[in-house]
């Protein structure tokens, strides 16, 4: 059970980090941040954070039982 509780805590941490990185005013400055190889920076940022969140969740679960 403490194992499960730790898992929940870590996933909650990932959740809060994702909330902050994707849904807070942190994303606003990126709207006009121009392009990178022709692709708007915001696109790259959102997909990078998204992929990072999934990787973090996968990592947490691989450490604490899948």
């Amino acid at each position: 059970m403490p194992h499960t509780r730790l898992l929940h805590k870590r996933l909650l941490a990932v959740f809060l980090a994702a909330l902050l990185l994707l849904f807070s005013p942190l994303v606003l400055p990126l709207e006009g941040a121009g392009r990178w190889f022709g692709i708007p920076v915001l696109f790259i940022y959102l997909f990078a954070v998204w992929g990072g969140v999934i990787a973090a969740a996968a990592w947490v679960l691989s450490r604490l039982g899948d």
């Binding site: 898992l7 996933l11 909330l19 994707l22 849904f23 915001l42 959102l46 998204w50 969140v53 969740a57």
Partner: peptide
Amino acid sequence: GLDFLTIYLGPTLMALLWGS
């Protein structure tokens, strides 16, 4: 533009809470 992503980012975050 990007508003289609909401439909998938929301569930991504929700999935993080599925454990409980």
